[in-house]
Simulated assay, not measured.
Amino acid sequence: MSHTIAGKKKLLSRVRRIKGQSIALETALEGEPNCMAVLQQVAAIKGAVNGLMKEVLEAHLREHLGGEDMTKDERLEEVEDVISILKSYLK
C-alpha cells in the first residue's frame, strides 16, 4: 500500500488546513489588512506547506528507497527523481 494512501486522512487534513489558511489570507487581502498580519499568515502557510512536504518526502524515502526490493539502478533513478523534486521545491 502506498504511503500516500495509508496516510491519506492525515495528509488531507493538512491540505485542508492549508486551504483554510489560504482562504483567510485572500479574505484579509480583499480588505484593508495589517501588514504584520499578512506576513504572519504567509509564514504560517509556508510552514504548513513545508510540514506537508516533509511528511510526504519522509514517507516516500522510507517506502521507496528504504526497501530491499530495488536494484541499484532503480534506486539511483529514484534518488534522481527525488533530487529533481527537491530542486524545484527549493527554488
Score class of each variant (00 low, 15 high):
residue 1 M to V: 08
residue 2 S to P: 06
residue 3 H to R: 02
residue 3 H to C: 01
residue 5 I to Y: 01
residue 6 A to L: 09
residue 7 G to C: 01
residue 11 L to M: 02
residue 13 S to G: 12
residue 14 R to I: 05
residue 15 V to P: 00
residue 16 R to E: 13
residue 18 I to L: 02
residue 19 K to H: 14
residue 22 S to W: 00
residue 22 S to V: 13
residue 26 E to I: 10
residue 26 E to Q: 14
residue 30 E to T: 10
residue 31 G to A: 12
residue 33 P to N: 04
residue 35 C to E: 10
residue 35 C to L: 09
residue 36 M to S: 06
residue 37 A to T: 10
residue 37 A to L: 08
residue 43 A to M: 02
residue 43 A to R: 05
residue 46 K to Y: 06
residue 46 K to T: 08
residue 46 K to G: 03
residue 49 V to G: 00
residue 52 L to Y: 05
residue 52 L to A: 08
residue 53 M to W: 04
residue 53 M to T: 03
residue 54 K to D: 14
residue 55 E to M: 03
residue 55 E to S: 03
residue 58 E to F: 04
residue 59 A to H: 02
residue 60 H to W: 07
residue 60 H to Q: 06
residue 61 L to R: 04
residue 62 R to Y: 08
residue 63 E to I: 01
residue 63 E to F: 02
residue 64 H to F: 06
residue 65 L to P: 10
residue 67 G to H: 10
residue 68 E to M: 12
residue 70 M to D: 09
residue 70 M to E: 13
residue 71 T to Q: 11
residue 72 K to E: 14
residue 72 K to T: 11
residue 76 L to W: 07
residue 76 L to M: 15
residue 76 L to I: 11
residue 76 L to Y: 09
residue 77 E to A: 14
residue 77 E to H: 13
residue 78 E to S: 14
residue 80 E to I: 02
residue 81 D to T: 08
residue 82 V to P: 03
residue 82 V to Y: 04
residue 84 S to M: 10
residue 86 L to N: 11
residue 88 S to L: 11
residue 88 S to W: 06
residue 90 L to D: 10
residue 91 K to W: 10
